[in-house]
């Protein structure tokens, strides 16, 4: 039973389909990575899983519960969390307020979750009273991930979490993401830095023109000569 699975997803924004019978899934405690060339439909696949795209066919399920018809907001209540690539923090609000807004749908006491997020990203605790817009790119991404974790999701989806951050910060972020996965959350992400991402991935999906080209463990994909040649630069 997968934590999250999208089977045979076909669809696009207007008349033209971007995804063609695309299947993506991730298990609890795993990191799954979607890689592929520009315009392969990586982000689109992510949006389809999160209900931001109308599917012509295919289904999406969380823990075997069909959620194909649910809106993104309702999927959050089903235990999914999504970190968009751009504009993923409330820039005018403090770090702490960002986390509070992440927990907006929760009526219970969420101080424990906030402590966990601060343990995972110590720098955020230090900057909790600072506006998120004043932070560096890497710190902002930490706020974005922290905000998503506040709902205590079962599935965490990240759209290019390392876009625009330095290689050192990228490694750091990947370490944190592994840590999140080890706590039992299913992590699915889209990445431009394919090599580094596949290194930490339990499962990798190579998408080309909206179709599954290769699906294997991250390690196997890295060793696959065809994948190396076509997508990883040799």
């Amino acid at each position: 039973m997968s934590a999250l699975v999208g089977e045979g997803m076909t669809g696009g924004y207007g008349g033209v389909d971007i995804l063609h019978d695309c299947t993506i899934g991730v298990d609890a405690g795993e990191v799954a990575v979607i890689v592929g060339p520009n315009g392969a439909g990586k982000s689109t696949a992510m949006k389809a899983l999160f209900g931001m795209l109308d599917l012509k066919s295919g289904r999406v399920a969380v823990h075997d519960k069909d959620i194909t018809a649910l809106s993104p907001q309702d999927r959050v209540r089903e235990g999914m969390a999504f970190v968009p690539q751009n504009r993923n923090v409330f820039t005018s609000m403090t770090v702490e307020e960002n986390l509070e807004m992440g927990a907006f749908i929760r009526d219970d006491d969420f101080t424990d979750t906030m402590t966990q997020v601060f343990d995972l990203f110590p720098i955020l605790k230090e900057k909790r009273r600072q506006a998120a817009g004043e932070l560096s790119g890497g710190q902002r991404q930490q706020v974005a991930v922290g905000r998503a974790l506040m709902t205590q999701p079962q599935v965490l989806m990240l759209d290019e979490p390392t876009a625009g951050v330095s290689p050192i910060v990228m490694d750091e972020l990947f370490d944190r993401i592994i840590e999140v996965a080890r706590s039992g959350i299913a992590v699915l992400m889209v990445e431009q830095n394919a090599k580094q991402a596949l290194e930490i991935a339990d499962k990798g999906y190579v998408l080309v023109q909206g179709e599954n080209r290769f699906t294997d463990s991250g390690q196997a994909l890295l060793e696959n000569p065809e994948v190396r040649q076509a997508f990883l630069g040799g």
Partner: peptide, 22 residues
């Protein structure tokens, strides 16, 4: 207040506020 903060969040970034369940 929670309602007030949700208003600031909505004003700051509507999409993200919706994702947060506002």
């Amino acid at each position: 207040t929670r309602a007030g903060k949700s208003m600031r969040a909505y004003s700051d970034n509507e999409d993200l506020a919706l994702l947060s369940g506002v």
